[in-house]
Design a protein around this nucleic acid. Structure first.
Length: 797
RNA sequence: GGGCGACUAGCUCAACUGGCUAGAGCACCUCGUUUACACCGAGGGGGUUAGGGGUUCGAGUCCCUUGUCGCCCACCA
């Protein structure tokens, strides 16, 4: 050992990696140097004389700008970031494009609650004021979310960050609507939709969930209008009328038929006959439908087309086949879930359950209630607020997604998009094959207003839709309303000057704007190209199609499925080649995290205790594609130990290097670089360089094959088990007793340092903070040039 | 009802196209103040890979079957 009094380079380093401080500092340095910009990377590559490869792009999933990010979000970004960093270091100008989602219905629901806590009702302040305040609220939430994304180390290009309501995105989205409308893919129509009485809006099927709930199954007798039929029924069926069984007695007020199976012997004599709805006292016919299951209930189904999807279908099919005896649709429940329409006065305004109870009582008194069974059945509920869905018939905007899904299927079959894990690819295929028209209008305030103006008003348009073959004159005659337009739809963001088809006086023309907004997914479904300036944008040419789409598996159908369809429609290309589904982080009890269960740990707590690197490393190993990862603090702790190991092994190397030796070591590193390049991983040589090379190439394969968990495992095994436990221990012996500057000592230490640097490179995409922190010490000591940053080092060299 | 997946050490999970004695972390046991790290080192115990059958020179891995669990989709009134 040298008797020199000089201090070694590593002497001043702290004994443990201070993740709280270091991670934040290092991030700021990267940001300052704009390493997250693909243009900066391209310039650097040129300057270094390296090949500028094809761009690597991920448009990051925009989190909902209405709440803090949870652990799942943050860990998910660790995945994006690892790939981004790997490809950046491999010579690809890399763009991780960040954003925040306005999240229509969810944010509106959240913000309504925020207002309610202040004693404010949204209807009081009105649409404009609501949107103004909601915008502020979202902007603030977005800021907090961005800070969290930075904290996990996400190397995204913040200069390109988008909010989904950004006018630049809106322009792209409106153009899509316009094109689709012109192509006949978008239409307005009267259909049965899912109404959330609480959110007071229509929902797409996919926005609902099924929940098992307790319910009743009531057997109700509908007497025949004709006493002769009642006599016959008593003989055949055992009661004077037709017995129906229903879970929702209140909908009987909206019944317009009874349906039986055409081959059902029991009812053969009664097909075409009329029964009287008890209490409502309306006559309805008995019709047939193949859809009826003879073994359910009594085999006779009361048909309420306005409030049951299957009834709606039965009615449509019946009307198609029997145009001379059509069945009506009778709306008896309004959009807030209250009884309405052509029903006895005493039921009006009642809630559905209240009405059901009242009806059951009256039926019982009238002797028309046979029995009530208690059952459990699946009920659709609003995904956002858990309120049971009320199916109602109303006019909404739809996208005919069938042709789009067909294109998407072709691409799936061709293999231009693959989903990892594979099983989910089949699920996506299944989704496309069974896709139904997508209801895209929402009766909300928060979102993109649908860019449509109704000439003569929306009522006129919808009336004409409901009455095919009728004219505006018929409308005037039937409703007594004055006609103030052609009933046509004008697609435009701004109010159109005029309706070119309008024959009347210009001042009589009424152009009414659509008040509905788009389903959130209509805009986020265009994310990969809208954020790149649309199909004609500058960035689009450089960065589209993107490479990866990474998100949790629970939004595959909502999001990736839509992005693929929209991209094919607007750009003719698939938006990405790989959809990688990350695992969901579950609570400490192995169940889905939720605030009420208190089974989560706030991200802040994890980060301050163990640091971002440790959290990242845990996520790679435990949250495999498609799997669930129960949160285990001990495992994160274990990974924190590994992060600290990296720090201390590096510290050991630096503690053995003295300033006087630096020039010699720097020279030696250059030599080793050429040795490294000439080292074959195939050779049987078991020296350290060859072993490191083998390891390096294995890890490169894993990265490219998206097996981050194998990289994480491999790195731990190699760095801890081989580099730290063996090589460092060996080197201790090899340099023992040699004085500072001894050529043999310099040689051995240089090799150890070089191997360390190679390890840091391989590990950096996973644990960027600790690796870059060490790298900075090399630069600070003059071992490498000061402008060398690990984040842009050449991973392949 | 349809689709997808899981079942491996006490716990949470690995094992890439079937191939050395099935591996990690945490937990557990024994020992240890050595030129980094006790957020450490050396060593150790612990598995009939859910059960059964099959293909193969060889199966955690492929096929069949039984069971248990989970997720997604679906209009059983």
């Amino acid at each position: 050992m040298g008797e020199s009094t000089q201090k070694s380079i590593g002497e001043a380093l702290p004994k443990a990696f201070d993740s709280q401080k270091q991670e934040v500092n290092i991030y700021a340095e990267w940001e300052k140097r704009k390493f997250f910009s693909p243009e900066t990377v391209a310039d650097l590559l040129k300057k270094q004389g390296r090949e500028v490869k094809h761009s690597f792009t991920i448009t990051l999933p925009p989190p909902n700008a209405n709440d803090d990010l949870h652990l799942g979000h943050m860990a998910g970004y660790a995945y994006h970031d690892a790939f981004g960093r790997f490809y950046r270091m491999s010579g690809h100008p890399t763009l991780l494009l960040p954003g925040k989602d306005h999240a229509g219905i969810q944010t509106e629901a959240v913000f309504v609650r925020v207002l309610a806590r202040q004693g404010i009702d949204k209807w009081e302040i009105g649409r404009d004021e609501f949107n103004k305040r909601c915008y502020e609220y979202s902007t603030n939430a977005a800021k907090i979310a961005q800070a969290q994304e930075k904290r996990i180390g996400l190397s995204a290009d913040w200069d390109r960050e988008f909010f989904t309501l950004d006018p630049r995105l809106t322009e792209v989205i409106y153009k899509t609507f316009e094109d689709m409308y012109a192509d006949g893919l978008i239409y307005r129509g009267k259909y049965i939709i899912n109404q959330c009485p609480h959110c007071r809006t229509a929902l797409a099927d996919i926005d609902t969930e099924h929940k098992e709930m307790r319910g009743i199954f009531a057997y109700i007798l509908y007497p025949f209008a004709d006493e002769a039929d009642n006599d016959r029924a008593e003989e055949v069926l055992g009661h004077r009328g037709v017995m129906v069984a229903t879970t929702r007695p209140e909908t009987m007020l909206g019944d317009t038929a009874i349906a039986v199976h055409p081959e059902d012997e029991r009812y053969r004599d009664f097909i075409g006959k009329k029964v009287i709805i008890p209490i409502a006292k309306r006559e309805i016919p008995i019709i047939t439908s193949e859809e009826i299951d003879m073994s359910t209930g009594t085999g006779a189904l009361k048909v309420t087309p306005a409030h049951s999807p299957i009834d709606f279908e039965i009615r449509n099919k019946h009307n198609e086949e029997n145009p001379d005896s059509p069945i009506d649709i009778l709306n008896v429940i309004d959009e807030t879930g209250k009884m309405t329409g052509d029903i006895p006065e005493r039921f009006k305004g009642m809630g559905t359950i209240e009405c059901s109870k009242a009806l059951v009582q009256e039926l019982d008194k009238a002797g028309l209630l046979e029995k009530i069974e208690n059952i459990k059945h699946d009920v659709s509920v609003c995904e956002r607020c858990d309120t049971p869905i009320e199916p109602i018939v109303s006019n909404q905007w739809f996208v005919d997604v069938k042709p789009l899904a067909k294109r998407a299927l072709e691409e799936l079959d061709k293999g231009s998009v693959k989903v990892i894990p594979k099983g989910q690819q089949n699920a996506l295929k299944h989704f496309y094959e069974n896709i139904i028209p997508w209801c895209i209008s929402r009766q909300l305030w928060w979102g993109h207003r649908i860019p449509v103006w109704y000439s003569g008003g929306r009522d006129l348009h919808d009336w004409l839709n409901d009455h095919p073959g009728s004219t505006v004159e018929d409308y005037e005659k039937e409703t007594g309303n004055k006609v103030q337009g052609t009933g046509k739809v004008l697609v435009s963001d701004e109010k159109p000057e005029t309706d070119p088809d309008w024959q009347g006086k210009p001042e009589d023309l009424l152009l009414e704007p659509e008040s509905d907004v788009f389903d959130t997914w209509f805009s986020s479904g265009q994310w990969p190209f809208s954020t790149l300036g649309g199909p004609d944008g500058e960035d689009f040419k450089k960065y589209f199609p993107t490479q990866y789409m990474i998100h949790a598996r629970d939004i595959l159908f909502w999001w990736s499925a839509r992005m693929i369809m929209f991209s094919l429609y607007r750009t003719g290309q698939v938006p990405f080649n790989t959809v990688l589904l990350t695992g969901l982080i579950f609570g400490t009890d192995g169940k889905k995290m939720s605030k009420s269960r208190e089974n989560g740990i706030p991200p802040k707590e994890i980060l301050s205790k163990y640091g971002a690197d440790a959290l990242r490393l845990w996520y790679y190993t435990d949250a495999l594609p498609g799997a669930n990862a129960p949160l285990q603090e001990d495992k994160i702790k274990g990974n924190r130990h590994f992060v600290n190991k990296i720090w201390n092994a590096s510290r050991f190397v630096l503690m053995n290097i003295y300033p006087d030796e630096v020039p010699a070591i720097a020279d030696e590193l250059d030599n080793l670089q050429s040795v490294w390049q000439g080292t074959s991983a195939d050779s049987d040589a078991d020296d350290r360089m060859a072993q490191q090379k083998r390891f390096h190439q294995n890890m490169m394969t894993h990265y490219k094959e998206n097996r981050l968990h194998l990289v994480a495992n491999g790195v731990r095994e190699h760095f801890w088990g081989v580099f730290a436990d063996k090589w460092i221990e060996d080197v201790k012996n090899e340099i023992q007793g040699k004085s500072i500057g001894d050529p043999q000592r310099v040689k051995v230490l240089s090799e150890l340092l070089f191997l360390l640097m190679q390890n840091l490179k391989v590990m950096h995409p996973l644990v960027p903070f600790v690796t870059e922190s060490v790298w900075r010490e090399f630069a600070g000591a003059g071992i490498i040039a000061d402008d060398r940053w690990l984040i842009v080092e050449d991973l392949e060299a």
